[in-house]
Amino acid sequence: MAQWMAKADPTKDFFIDMITRDIGLDECIFDLLDNSIDGASRHSKQDKRENLAGYFADILLGETDFEIKDNCGGMSLIDAKDYAFHFGRRSDAPKDAENSIGLYGIGMKRAIFKIGKKIKIRSATGAAPEEAFEADIDVAAWAAKKEWEFQLDQIDPKGFVGTEISVKELRKATSSEFSDQIFVNKLRKDVGKYYSFFCSKGLK
């Protein structure tokens, strides 16, 4: 009896649509902010500090651009290559910090794909020059490739320690919400409410 294999690989366009369909833009921003806070918590523990004083996460958004920038310790190159850009948590992924709140493995990618089409991620830990990298992601070009990898390029950190994520060519719905003052005001209020504990520990 003859047997054949039917291909069941998902297209990237379908995959992107599925992981972004049921999440709001405010939740996307919270996912990214969670990652910043997790970084600050890990970094402060390494320095044997009890608070988050000195750490910040800045969120800038508008009709054409989005950016989140922090000084919360950055992402190690090993984590970036092996885990952070992977879709879903790998079985060998390191355990997050005890009080981790981020969705390590899906939150960052889901958020940036929901927000826009041209993405730049820069990160540096300050541990060594080779720990600094950036990734330029053109979502349409990436979706057209067979490979699922993201290219990471070494950069000169120039004293920068932390992570910057900038998104341009916002999706139409994203641009509309980000230019709506009602959305912005609610987001500001929700950040203050949901992250009051971390702000009380010194995070700005």
Rank of each mutant, 00 (worst) to 15 (best):
M1E: 09
A2T: 01
Q3S: 09
W4A: 11
A6D: 03
T11W: 04
D13A: 10
F15D: 10
M18N: 06
I19A: 04
R21H: 12
D22I: 02
D22Q: 13
G24W: 08
G24V: 03
D26K: 14
E27P: 00
E27Y: 03
I29K: 06
I29H: 07
F30S: 00
D31F: 06
L32I: 07
L33Y: 05
L33M: 06
S36G: 08
I37S: 05
I37R: 03
I37E: 05
D38W: 12
D38A: 09
G39F: 08
S41E: 12
H43T: 06
S44F: 01
K45E: 15
Q46F: 08
D47A: 12
E50S: 13
N51R: 09
F56R: 04
L60T: 12
L61P: 00
F66H: 01
I68D: 05
I68V: 10
N71C: 08
N71E: 08
G73V: 07
S76C: 04
S76E: 14
A80R: 13
A80E: 15
K81W: 01
K81I: 04
Y83H: 15
A84Y: 13
A84F: 13
A84G: 00
A84I: 12
H86L: 11
R89S: 13
R90E: 02
A93C: 14
P94W: 10
D96Q: 14
E98I: 03
E98W: 01
N99W: 12
I101P: 03
I101E: 04
L103G: 10
L103H: 15
G105H: 07
M108P: 00
M108D: 01
A111R: 07
A111C: 12
A111M: 10
K114E: 04
K114D: 04
I115G: 04
K117L: 03
K117P: 00
K118M: 11
K120V: 15
T125I: 08
A127H: 10
E130L: 02
E130I: 02
E131I: 01
F133T: 01
E134W: 00
A135T: 05
I137E: 05
D138W: 06
D138C: 03
A141W: 00
W142L: 10
K145C: 04
K145P: 01
E147I: 07
W148I: 05
E149P: 00
F150G: 03
Q151I: 10
L152P: 09
L152F: 07
L152K: 03
D153L: 05
F160I: 02
V161L: 14
G162Q: 07
V167Q: 00
K168D: 11
R171N: 09
K172S: 12
T174Y: 02
T174P: 05
S176R: 13
S176V: 04
E177C: 09
S179T: 06
S179M: 02
S179W: 04
D180A: 08
Q181K: 12
N185T: 06
N185A: 07
K189L: 10
K193E: 15
K193T: 05
S196F: 07
F197E: 15
F198Q: 12
S200C: 08
S200Q: 14
L203D: 07
